[in-house]
Amino acid sequence: MLAQSVFLILAVVALSSGVMVITRRNPVHSVIWLIVTLFSVGGIFLLQYAQFLFAVQIILYVGGIMVLYLFVIMLIRVETVAKQAPYSRQWAIGLGAVLVLACELMYGVYKGVESFHLGTPSRPPVDMNNTEAVAGVLYNNYMLPVEIASLLLLVAMVGAVLMAKKRFE
């Protein structure tokens, strides 16, 4: 009961602040609302006893990436960007995407949960906590994909640095 009401509150906060993100004119305000969204999603993770995911959500997204967002926004000229409103022309495409997504969701709701083949959530062993379970899965079962993904990110990072360096030289 308690868990459900907490979930409802978090979900409503996440959705409504998500709406705020895309409706704010000032990009800094958008970022603040995005932080609120990420926080509530983190709360939902916590509600599912996924403490590790919660912590990573906060550390990476809220503590790291959003700070960089703010950093970039402060370096550019907010006033000129606000005047140009570069995305307002694409509202038709956006509307189409929203319609498709809404249809999909409605179809899903109409069919009900039972019609989908969902995997049964695996419970971690009792003597292990959530973090150890995640670590075990990532570094034992899926070692290669993790390494490939990290390599990809490294390449992206080095590429970005190179591009920035070339521009300033």
């Binding site: 370096l75 550019i76 000229r77 000129t80 960007v81 140009q84």
Partner: peptide
């Protein structure tokens, strides 16, 4: 071409 990152 508009670069918002122009550090003048």
């Amino acid at each position: 071409e508009v670069t918002y990152l122009d550090a003048d």
